[in-house]
Simulated assay, not measured.
Amino acid sequence: MFEFDYTDTNYEQLVHAMAFSLQVPVHNEQLLIPEAIGTGSFRHIHAPNGLHAYLIDCTLRKDWHIHINQSSEEYYMLRFDELAIPQSLTITVADEKIREKNTNKALAYLTSSLYNWSYEGTAGCSYKGVHIAFSKQWLGRYFEIERVEDVLSSYISLKAESINIIPLDARYRRWMKTISHVEEDNPMRTTILQNRMMLLVERFFTSLFEKMSNPAYRLPLSHEDIARVMHIERLLTRNVLQTPPSIQQLARIAAISESKLKKDFKTMYNFPIYEYFQKARMHAAQDKLLTGKYSVKEVAMELGYSNLSNFTIAFKKEFGILPSQLLSQKKLSH
């Protein structure tokens, strides 16, 4: 078994401690996992505005246990994780545990350095994650949030119970992918990293504050319902360039009625299935345009629009501006 036990809130030091444990070097704040343990890497990134992130992208060949001990220094860790679990995984926050078997998990949740936290999994588990560390003072300063301490303490007191509250959707995963794959030689790399990290933090807390304002809030779905709907969301957004499956096909995959699927999906993601899919397509189009590598026509054609005006209408409906205006704004910003 690969075991890593650590006590600190500094992600840069964490990467170096992990490298020491694995007996591998650190290059550009990244370590590569030795073949005997698995494949992939761990990495630290630092944004100019004070955010630190810890990136994980690996598949473990051994059983593994990563344990971060509680610290006297109070910090918060916002975790965005995608896990493929072929056998079993135990998530522990303080003294509460959630056990998963033969499934995929895609979740965003918040932990505090004042609590122990750990993942314990079996061989074959794939793990992609973006973990962002900050203090409550940083959060209050950047988001001008009143009563930050009250909201954070209320959320943290839920511990493991809250893990399923915010599932990762297509937008979260897209930002995570950008953070993990932005090119080293990209002159905008630092700006892109900081921007996507801020988007992750802002969206998480916007959703959190809306829910925490209602003390009686609980997602009115069972654990099994949540897992089913998250699976359908992943299938739906796996390739937004393709025609999506029908509701009938999705319901058959989920092994529930069409009416229940539509109701549960809207409960989880706030939009009907195909409206959600259309939003995911438009955000994918926006990302492509923002790279500066594609014309409006090329993006429209890739998304399957034979009529360019239909694409521009759909884009403006989602973002309030035409795709050509987005390109013009990007050029002006440079």
Rank of each mutant, 00 (worst) to 15 (best):
E233R: 10
M282T: 08
F315A: 07
S71K: 03
R196D: 13
T191Q: 10
E100Q: 11
I226T: 12
R189H: 07
F205P: 01
S154F: 09
D264L: 03
D81Q: 09
H334P: 00
M18Q: 06
A285Q: 02
A251E: 10
F2A: 11
V24F: 03
I85F: 06
S257F: 08
I232P: 00
R238F: 09
T191W: 06
T122D: 11
L326Q: 15
I247V: 15
T111L: 02
S157A: 15
Y172I: 04
S207I: 11
H223N: 10
I321M: 13
L31G: 00
H44N: 11
S71W: 02
D57Q: 13
Y217L: 06
R196Y: 14
K297Q: 13
Y155P: 00
L139T: 05
I33W: 01
D264V: 04
F205S: 02
R218Q: 14
H181D: 09
S153V: 10
K263R: 15
S21H: 11
F20Y: 06
E82P: 00
A170C: 05
S135R: 05
C125K: 01
G140R: 06
I313Y: 10
A123K: 07
E302Y: 07
F277I: 04
D81Y: 01
N195Q: 14
I253N: 03
G124P: 03
I313E: 09
W117Y: 15
A133N: 05
T267E: 05
T312V: 09
G304W: 13
V296Y: 01
N28W: 07
K317W: 04
L31R: 01
F134K: 00
M301D: 10
E35C: 02
L326F: 08
M198W: 03
L22M: 15
K211Q: 12
L31Q: 01
I192Y: 05
T267K: 06
T90E: 13
T190Y: 01
T190V: 11
R174H: 12
P86V: 10
